[in-house]
Design a protein around this nucleic acid. Structure first.
Lengths: 215, 215, 215, 215
DNA sequence: TATGAATGAGCATTCATTCAT
DNA sequence: TATGAATGAATGCTCATTCAT
């Protein structure tokens, strides 16, 4: 028998993004607490009992709010993807219509969402695979649309001679990946401000793309 | 009751790196099979019975080779870290002693290891947290040393005026993170060659650092 | 492979003493059935499955009532010690305040408890060691207090010249031991009445002490 | 999860009586080590692995010496009963042919055996029930013959008007029981000498029988 | 004699879930 | 909405024992 594992992520409070969030009440409390637990110990290592204990509720009480354990995860994944997609869409629409500004806006928003909601980002990115295809489908659709926005901007930048990536697919994957890694090292209460991180990631993306405006 | 989740990673064979690998025999077969299962379904969603079934062995037989389930994971994590560290050290020593060449060599090696052993990379990066601190300690030490090699090269490049990163910490995290993301999107049997990926990541890293030689 | 062992004790019903007993319900049924099984086959040779089968319950149902197998034993040991201690205290208070009468009352009560609850006596005396120190502590404290009552009466009898034991410690151990042995040979449904046994043990104790009143 | 239980008996070395003992060698070492473990933790709580570990042997090695786990216990029980019976027989034959002297001799020997071999006495008396009837039979026969020797002496003493027990069966059980209790409280290295204990128990027996010589 | 690897049954316990209240 | 009691399947692991070497 071994000592219990260390936690994956120790952020103090697991907030749900205001938009796309469910109303106040027990259902919301369940989601917030599940977010905390799934982020720190993983979906499969969190039992319904653990969740109920943290909520000061009996396990059976949860079934008045969610049909099954994986529906709780599915709802968190849905919320995370919707908040992410809305943030990207809003940023994109507010950006000047040049590829560089659009990429900057998209990466900035992408980074903010990950830095401001690290637990949700972790659960969305790393526990996603625990969902059955049916439950994962809506989220996957949003994910594909978000990726398409970035890739489209990159293509236009290349077509206009503004971007000069070494390899567009690899570069796009690397840019998106910067966001996914945030919960693993970035501390919201640490020395780096979220805005600094977002701005830096945006400029890094342009450097990676060989943007003529930046080079 | 939901349909079973889709697999996280569907690579055909889970190879162990030749160096730092255990000798042939049942112990080795257990590690290879566990690697496959842990990579595709996660440590917590793989039972000893699943592992035994895949090995055509009885569950109790595993305990003649490993003291407990988490010792299997710990061994995989150890092997992964040792292979990674050795690859980086070898590449570093073979590189010309300029910061740019050293960064290029380190990122190239880092990328190769992740692309050639995606299951091991996934388990090492994403199931690491399931280990107790005691079992995780040796791997953590190697990880810290590997990170230090890259950060040291970056610092020297900055001191010599060769690198001009927007923010060294954020940039270092982004460079290292490119490797960690590989198993999530890169397919060894796909259209991009490992060598292309490694070379591209290396050049991307120099762009991110604002390397004068590349800019 | 050998034939199964014979039972240690085959009394028909395992009753719990009315005082210090838990209320009716499943928890009580578990204790009564566990008492029967622990007495006849021993704690370590009784599995949770055996217990559940005898109760016509599934093993997992027991865990709604007791945290672990050893908590069932600990509760039985607690009940046994409390009933024993209460019986001794009551008998002591009702006795005339002479050492001889007090010893007679204590040994009489001690004997009755063992003869009327042989399964509980057996479990308390012979499975006690299977408990961890923490779970055994409360019972041990009561045991010490009960022993002290007898030893104190013996000392006073000696001081008053009423008892003339060959060796007080050995004699006290022998007197107490008469009770512990009861479940091993005495049959409540047999030819000797409980009252006869208790009265005889009381007089035997006085003989052993060389009581002047009896000699 | 509970802390491990305390040991039932903590005597330093578990010796086998010289008579009826097996020859030197591994078989003997197994018996001695098993005696120690069975006495301190009980037969059912001692695994073949525990035994092998204590012997610095592999579990499978034990099967070259004993057919099964319960054969080890059966052999210990046999040795214990033979040593006990021989001691009683020798003492009886050396005693003067009066009932009082015979009882004195029998109780003296009975006590010595229990005090000098407390682990064996414990295992013989308390783990006996773990044996199947077939394996227990030879020991049971010796036990019955030993009891008969004492009861016979008591009957003769009564017939000759030398004993005046309150109740012969109860008194006989109490006398025999003094021996069985010894391992539970008597410490060979403690302040009471074995000879003192044996002599005291012998005189206590005569007091209990209302022996005219002693009264 | 002793070993290492394996077996098949069994262990205590936990799992997600149900259901009458 | 929430509970207490229960379920049936599964969990990681240990058991006594076997057997080829």
């Amino acid at each position: 028998m071994s000592t219990p594992p260390s936690s994956r992520l120790l952020a103090t409070d697991a907030r749900l993004p205001p938009t796309a969030a469910p109303p106040e009440g027990t259902r919301r409390r369940i989601l917030e607490t599940a977010l905390q637990l799934f982020a720190s110990r993983g979906y499969h290592d969190t039992s319904i009992r653990d969740l109920a204990t943290a909520l000061e509720l009996r396990p059976s009480a949860l079934y008045a709010h969610f049909a099954a354990k994986d529906h709780v995860l599915a709802e968190l994944v849905r919320i995370g993807h919707e908040a992410h997609f809305e943030a990207l869409e809003t940023a994109f629409q507010a950006a000047k219509p040049t590829p560089a500004d659009q990429v900057r806006a998209l990466v900035h928003a992408h980074t903010r969402v990950h830095a401001e909601h690290p637990q949700l980002a972790l659960v969305v990115n790393e526990e996603f695979y625990a969902l059955s295809p049916a439950l994962a489908a809506p989220a996957q659709a949003l994910r594909d649309r978000a990726n398409a926005m970035l890739i489209d901007a990159i293509r236009r930048g290349m077509a206009q001679g503004q971007f000069n990536p070494l390899h567009p697919e690899i570069t796009a994957a690397a840019i998106v990946g910067m966001g996914s890694r945030i919960p693993h090292w970035f501390e919201p209460a640490g020395p780096i401000a979220v805005e600094t991180l977002a701005a830096t990631h945006a400029e890094l993306a342009l450097r990676m793309l060989g943007s003529v405006a930046t080079a």
